[in-house]
């Protein structure tokens, strides 16, 4: 029962979604779809503490067992508690909350994300060293795009911006469409496997 019940719930829920879509049930179809979407939202909202609880458990255990770098875990827990209290008292759009989010969290977040820019350049140097035809094509395409989007590009090689635009609108758009169609077919096949109970890895009991 512990193994079969989740599979049955998957099947029934998926079947319900498909019945409301494929069969003409009058106003019931629309009402049922809206209600089910609301149920999905509400159930995920009530599960919102799953991540924070996991985070607290992990870092609490680090502090308790004095694992290496446990001080950072302690700092995380203290900041988490203080920030949560401030955001509940002040509201998420309050002056102090916005200061914490905009001037601290968003700045660290953007700085770490921007830092990838430095690494992307060095990684590109290592991987693009014209090892084969594919790498050469990728490198040439990337260079044209970068030059085309920079104001100096057209001054170095005339019409680079036009070529960059063509690459974006024709080969890039078509390639991405091919990938999307392939991924959609894959998702379709995976969904059928999940509904029929052939794909059970999500249950943690193996397929």
């Amino acid at each position: 029962m512990k193994r079969q019940l989740p599979i049955i719930i998957v099947f029934v829920t998926a079947l319900f979604v498909m019945v409301t879509k494929f069969f003409d049930l009058g106003t019931f179809s629309k009402t049922a779809q809206d209600e089910l979407n609301l149920w999905i939202t509400v159930s995920s909202v009530f599960a919102f503490l799953l991540g924070p609880i996991n985070l607290v458990r992990l870092h609490w255990s680090n502090v308790e067992k004095k694992r290496p770098n446990w001080v950072y875990s302690a700092i995380l827990l203290v900041v988490l508690v203080i920030s949560t209290i401030i955001m509940f008292v002040d509201g998420v759009n309050g002056k102090v909350s916005l200061f914490i989010v905009d001037k601290i969290a968003n700045r660290i977040d953007s700085a770490i994300y921007a830092m990838l820019g430095f690494y992307v350049c060095s990684a590109a140097y290592r991987s693009f060293k014209l090892k084969n035809t594919e790498a050469s094509i990728l490198l040439i395409s990337a260079v044209i795009l970068m030059l085309g989007q920079a104001p100096i590009g057209d001054a170095i090689i005339p019409n680079t911006s036009k070529l960059a635009e063509w690459i974006l609108t024709v080969p890039n758009s078509a390639g991405m469409r091919g990938i999307r169609i392939g991924a959609s077919i894959g998702a379709f096949a995976a969904s059928i496997r999940v509904i029929l109970g052939l794909e059970r890895s999500w249950t943690g009991t193996g397929s």
Binding site: G117, V120, S141, M146, P171
Partner: peptide, 22 residues
């Protein structure tokens, strides 16, 4: 080869986005 052109252009665009973020 066509996918490499697409990935290259995506890579170029992302790099430019990173640079503007920096």
């Amino acid at each position: 080869y066509a996918l490499m052109v697409a990935f290259g252009s995506a890579y170029g665009s992302i790099t430019m986005a990173y640079l503007s973020l920096i």
